[in-house]
Design a protein around this nucleic acid. Structure first.
Length: 321
DNA sequence: AAGATGGACAACCGCCTTTTA
DNA sequence: ATAAAAGGCGGTTGTCCATCT
C-alpha cells in the first residue's frame, strides 16, 4: 500500500525552527492540546509539515523535558538499559524522566559509544572486544599524558610496557588480596572463574588511564557499568563485602594494593626494565624492532594476555610503517 | 585572520505499527 | 475486514559552533 505524503513537501518549510514558530506551536498546543498533527499546521498558521510539528513538540518544546548535561547516574542507567534493550531508544527514554529518545540516542552516539570503544568495550555487545583497539588505547593514554610527546618507537614500547606491567602488577595484587582473604580460594583460576578475568583487565586498564592513578586499584561502579551487566557488578560487590574489601559510596570496590603481599614490584621504577640508554635506540626504524630489542615477548607468567597486547601493538606498528 | 575540521545536537526521512472510520 | 491516517521509531543528515592549522 502506497502511503500518501502527510503534506506537500515542496511547499512546507524545513530546517531549524525559529523562536516565532516555536511560540506559535506552543501556544496552539497549550490551547488545543497535542494531536491531530496533520491539521495542526494549517489551524495554527504554520508553514510546516505536521510530522515536523510533532517532532518539534515531543523532542524540544514539551514542558516536561529536562535539558542540560546528562548526570553520571543517567549515563550509567542508559548503558545498563542499552545492554538489556539494545537500540530501543524510546523504551530507554521511558526510564529516564524528562529525556527524549532522540536526546538519548544522540548522547549515546556522540559520547557513550566512543567512551566504550576507548575502553575496549564493544558498544553493541557490551563485552570486551576481542580485537583490542590498541591505537585507540594509545590515543587515550596520550591524551592523559601517559605517553605524551613520544615519537621514538622505543620509548613508545617502553611506556606501553610500563602500562602493561602496571596493569599486570595491579591485577596480581588484586587477585592475591582477594585470595588472601578467602581460604577457599586457593588459586587464581578459581577467583578468575568467579570474577571473570576480562572484567578485571578492563577495570585495570581504565584505572590505569585515570590521571590520578595511585597505588590502589579502583573498580568504580561507573567503569563496571560501562562494560558489564549489573549482575556482574553485584557479583563483585558481594564478593567485596564478603571479604571486607572497602566499598565506596558509589558502590565501587577499592583494593588497596599496599595491603597485598609485595610479590611484584611496587612501582614502575622498581619493575625490571632493561638498563639501556634511550639514545642507543633512537635510530630504530619501527616499533617491532624496538620491542624485539626490549625482549618484550619474554614477559614471564603472562596469564592475562598482556603479551598479546604488546604483540598486537607491534603488528599495528609494522602495518602502519 | 581565515579556511578546514570535527563534535554536538536538532531535524528529517522512510519504514513500521497502531488506530480509526 | 479493510484501507487510510496517524503516530512511533531508529537511522541518517544538516547545521551550528568551537577548535585547530
Amino acid at each position: 500500500m502506497v502511503r500518501a505524503p502527510c503534506c506537500d513537501e515542496t511547499k512546507v518549510k524545513k530546517g531549524p525552527w525559529t523562536t516565532e514558530e516555536d511560540e506559535i506551536l506552543k501556544e496552539y498546543i497549550e490551547t488545543h492540546g497535542p494531536g491531530k498533527w496533520r491539521d495542526l499546521p494549517k489551524k495554527a498558521g504554520l508553514n510546516r509539515c505536521g510530522k515536523s510539528c510533532r517532532l518539534r513538540w515531543t523532542n524540544y518544546l514539551r514542558p516536561d523535558i529536562k535539558r542540560g548535561k546528562f548526570t553520571d547516574d543517567e549515563e550509567r542507567l542508559i548503558i545498563h538499559l542499552h545492554s538489556v534493550l539494545g537500540n530501543k531508544w524510546s523504551m530507554i527514554a521511558t526510564k529516564l524522566a524528562g529525556r527524549t529518545d532522540n536526546e538519548i540516542k544522540n548522547y549515546w552516539n556522540t559520547h557513550i559509544r566512543k567512551k566504550l570503544l576507548m575502553m575496549g568495550i564493544d558498544p553493541v555487545t557490551h563485552r570486551q572486544r576481542t580485537d583490542l583497539d590498541l591505537p585507540n588505547l594509545i590515543t587515550v593514554a596520550n591524551k592523559l599524558n601517559l605517553c605524551n610527546n613520544i615519537t621514538n618507537p622505543f620509548e613508545s614500547a617502553l611506556r606501553l610496557q610500563d602500562v602493561a606491567n602496571l596493569a599486570r602488577m595491579q591485577l596480581n595484587n588484586v587477585l592475591l588480596q582477594a585470595i588472601s582473604q578467602d581460604p577457599l580460594l586457593t588459586n587464581v583460576d578459581a577467583l578468575s572463574s568467579i570474577l571473570g578475568i576480562n572484567a578485571l583487565q578492563t577495570g585495570l586498564v581504565s584505572s590505569l588511564l585515570q590521571p590520578n592513578f595511585s597505588n590502589s586499584c579502583i573498580f568504580s561502579s561507573n567503569a563496571l557499568n560501562q562494560g558489564f551487566d549489573v549482575s556482574y557488578e553485584d557479583q563483585i560487590c558481594s564478593l567485596g563485602s564478603e571479604r571486607n574489601i572497602p566499598c565506596g559510596t558509589d558502590g565501587s570496590l577499592v583494593f588497596n594494593t599496599s595491603q597485598a603481599p609485595p610479590l611484584v614490584a611496587a612501582s614502575p621504577e622498581e619493575m625490571a626494565q632493561p638498563t639501556v640508554s634511550l639514545s642507543a635506540y633512537s635510530n630504530l626504524s619501527n616499533l617491532s624492532e624496538a620491542t624485539e630489542q626490549l625482549n618484550l615477548s619474554d614477559l614471564a607468567d603472562d596469564n592475562f594476555g598482556w603479551k598479546d597486547i604488546l604483540d598486537q601493538l607491534s603488528r599495528c606498528s609494522t602495518t602502519k610503517s
